[in-house]
Every structure is written in C-alpha cells, then in structure tokens.
C-alpha cells in the first residue's frame, strides 16, 4: 500500500500544480472571475461574448423585426462567434435567402441588391435587401 500512498501524493501534487498554474498563465483569471461574479446577466454576456460582438448582436436584435431571415458577413463559418450570434438572434433565422445582411467589422462590404438599413458603427452595419 506504500505504492498507493505514492500515487495519492503524486496525484495531489499534479492536481494542485495545474490548479495554480491556470492563475499564473492567465493572470486576469482571478479578476475575470471577480468581474463575472459581481456583474448582472447582461454584463456577463458582454464579457463572455466580447463587448463589441455582444453590442452588435443586441443592436441587430433591436433593428430587425422578430422572425426575419438574415445572413451574416464578417464572422468565420463554424466559428463560436457565429454560433453565439445565431443563437442570440433566434427567433430571427439565418437563411440563404435573407431579408437582412448583418455585416460585422467589414467596412468595405457592399451588396448591390441591398441598401443600408441601420448603422452600428463605421465598420459594422445592417443592410436590407431590395425585393
């Protein structure tokens, strides 16, 4: 059973080492936890989704009618940012035949069939497709 005791000691050392290491590698981890702990739900979402993206999502939700079809430009396909946006925008639906185009941080983006619907900032905006 001495061997078992050695295993326990090694396990605890590795466990403690990796637990402490996360705070050393990510020096902001403790303050991130603190910020998250003392923030409201809205603010937590902003912190986790990245402020700019979350504000853009919120802006988009307010700018297009519920249930509208949209497409997104400027977020990588299969990225977690895109998934978060699609999730947050629901019941608006992402579609290949969109009524709106949500353009995120693509200042030069242009679509001939669309007009500017609303402007979030110089880089991000919403286009509405002409029927």
């Amino acid at each position: 059973m001495k061997f078992f005791k050695v295993i326990i000691v090694v396990w605890i050392i590795i466990w403690a080492w990796f637990f402490l290491r996360q705070f050393r590698i990510n020096e902001n981890l403790f303050s991130t936890y603190k910020n998250l702990l003392f923030s409201g739900n809205e603010e937590k979402r902003r912190l986790v989704f990245r402020e700019n993206l979350y504000d853009f999502i919120k802006f988009s939700k307010q700018s297009i009618p519920p249930g509208s079809a949209y497409e997104v430009v400027g977020l990588e396909a299969d990225s977690v940012d895109l998934v978060r946006l699609v999730y947050s925008m629901y019941p608006c639906l992402r579609s290949q035949e969109p009524e709106y185009i949500l353009v995120y941080e693509q200042p030069g983006f242009n679509n001939k069939e669309s007009n500017l619907h609303s402007l979030f900032n110089g880089k991000s905006f919403i286009l509405k497709r002409e029927k």
Partner: peptide, 11 residues
Amino acid sequence: IKPVESYDAVA
C-alpha cells in the same frame, strides 16, 4: 457565473 457560450453547448 457564465451564460451558455461554448460551441456545442450553444449550437
């Protein structure tokens, strides 16, 4: 302390 945010959890 966090909303649902990981890829599969959301998608």
